[in-house]
Write a protein that binds this DNA or RNA. Structure first.
Lengths: 161, 161
DNA sequence: TATTGTTATACTCTATAACTATA
DNA sequence: TATAGTTATAGAGTATAACAATA
């Protein structure tokens, strides 16, 4: 699969192999990250996407479902589902927005607030562990590379624009 | 969210910010990769995971469902579903394994074979485009970094081992 | 008894379309 | 008419548990 040369010449990979390697390692890291959260005692219902929702609410203090959808890049329907699940588990509460009665405002419950504090700590520790093998120089290189990749933004046209 | 310093000091990110940046860019790249496949005229049913299944079968020539599950790191039940879908779309065929009548062997159909040739080309082109902003040096650095991250393998214990 | 694949079932993430209540 | 959120529905990806056929 990967024009193999397991000695040291890893600079010789094709773009495709490099990209696949990136996808693979990223997937592994995400897996380890999520396992880390659980192993540090965070509730298992807190999947990656749900955690992202809570972090967004936490950062905002309070936020409309509307805006949450925009921030997370997901659709209103999807937010409703997250909110249903998170409310059922008592992580958040819905309150009607008095200034616009169509809207709903989300807030963390008190218990979720302390959970999020813990989550922040834990995420910091996990991140340190996952990246511990990288030298400072490699970290800067990685940032630079990611930055470059982000600014690339190749546009592949799809039928629907 | 990200201890901001939008000038140039991107080497100063915390491990957590760096990891999140990685996750984000990776997600973006994967999205662009999939959009690229479609924009090059590959069938839309060919989602990322399904493509991976076909690539695995293609590489093997023929393969047992059993082994496919192992190679992809997914469960037998999940393979059945992929195979059902891919067979319905006439990308693959099931044939009984005469040497072990419990087993089923998978092969690409002829049309899928030529599709996969095309897919390989297209993936190469897309990869080149997505990584075109990286210098050769950055590519080596990235490989080195990913390699390092792969060898890290922090083990977070979960309840079930 | 162990293994291969399937049926039955379920859960998460995501989406579109139609609708309600409000603006 | 446009916006905020919900109901209804769907589909992809993943899983566990129970089971049939075979080893």
């Amino acid at each position: 699969m990967m024009s193999s040369d397991s000695s040291s010449g890893y600079g010789e990979l094709s773009a495709q192999d490099l990209l696949h390697l990136l996808f693979k390692i990223n997937h592994l890291l995400q897996r380890q990250f999520e396992m880390g959260l659980i192993s540090y005692g965070l509730p298992e219902q807190l999947t990656g996407p749900r955690l992202r929702v809570l972090l967004e609410i936490s950062a905002a203090g309070q936020i409309r479902m509307n805006e949450l959808a925009k921030n997370l890049g997901i659709k209103a329907r999807t937010v409703t589902q997250f909110v249903d699940a998170l409310q059922k588990d008592q992580f958040i509460v819905r309150t009607p927005d008095t200034s616009d009665r169509r809207a709903t405002i989300l807030q963390l419950t008190d218990s979720a607030k302390s959970l999020m504090e813990r989550a922040e700590e834990v995420m910091g520790e996990i991140s340190n562990k996952l990246l511990e093998r990288l030298t400072l120089e490699q970290r800067s290189q990685l940032v630079e590379i990611l930055w470059q990749l982000d600014s690339n933004r190749t546009e592949f046209s799809t039928k629907d624009g």
